[in-house]
Design a protein around this nucleic acid. Structure first.
Lengths: 150, 150
DNA sequence: TATTGTTATACTCTATAACTATA
DNA sequence: TATAGTTATAGAGTATAACAATA
């Protein structure tokens, strides 16, 4: 409408929409998990651990796409909360294997509940078929950019 | 599949997908506009100006959802590049009105081209109807969280 | 006195690089 | 010598608060 050039302007692109929505939705999610003393990156780490175990923290860093030193900081915090445990790999005592504790699983479940509630808020105005199409399309995009499958 | 609890795990939620996709896609976009010496926030400012003018930098800060001091920093950089001009409002000499220069319009157009190219890459595996459904759904979500319409 | 833009300051996040322990 | 984890350091990004000019 406001574009005189006859084709989609920047705000109509997927890139712009995903970027802005990601930021806004991420902030809202951050607010909701604040009471658990968690930030989105912590939840990302918990999620990865919930999907399977990793040989080392460096493995995990690769999966999360962050520097190994950041995994240390995240794991430190999660360990303080009692959400993860570090156990030395007896095969190679340089390695620390991270595992979710029961409390960690509870936290992960609580964050999942928050995310679902936010999902419901965001899509309350959409019909069931639209919701499903959106879900499928985003899953497909995520796979395309190499993000771990849900 | 990997979820034993019988309902969608965190990685399957919209919130998680939008957050991770937003980050990844944002990074890719950032790489592409780096050669113009721009970052996503600069493009957000240019985009806002491209959609209409704002009474003051504080207006702009509200629209972008950032602190006024950040608008100063962004505008400083854009002014150095010759993309925007600051002109004092003669009605109220405290106000600086930002306007896009011709070069600013060119930069905005170049960034739009980059975004469209990225869009095409991301959705190359989707059919036309899927692409349209995705576009519509994201636009609808954006409106729902109060983001400026495209 | 209130408001706009700016500057100064500080804090958060994250990466790079140096260091320690183990291999 | 090479690798995993950690610690130390530094840089980017952004917000808060003080300041100057104008109303």
């Amino acid at each position: 409408m406001s574009d005189v050039k006859g084709s989609a302007g920047l705000p109509d692109t997927l890139v712009f929409r995903l970027g802005t929505l990601g930021a806004v939705v991420g902030d809202r999610f951050a607010e909701r998990i604040e009471r658990h003393d968690l930030k989105p990156k912590h939840v990302g780490l918990l999620t990865a651990l919930g999907q399977g175990s990793f040989a080392s923290q460096q493995d995990l860093a690769g999966r999360l796409g962050v520097a190994p030193s950041l995994v240390v900081a995240l794991a430190d915090h999660l360990e303080t909360l009692g959400a993860v445990r570090r156990v030395r790999d007896p095969q190679d005592r340089r390695r620390q294997v991270l595992t979710l504790t029961d409390h960690g699983q509870e936290l992960l479940a609580a964050c999942t509940t928050e995310a679902r509630a936010l999902d419901a808020e965001l899509t309350a105005h959409l019909g069931q078929s639209e919701r499903e199409a959106l879900h499928a399309a985003l899953g497909s995009l995520a796979a395309r950019v190499g993000l771990p499958a849900g």
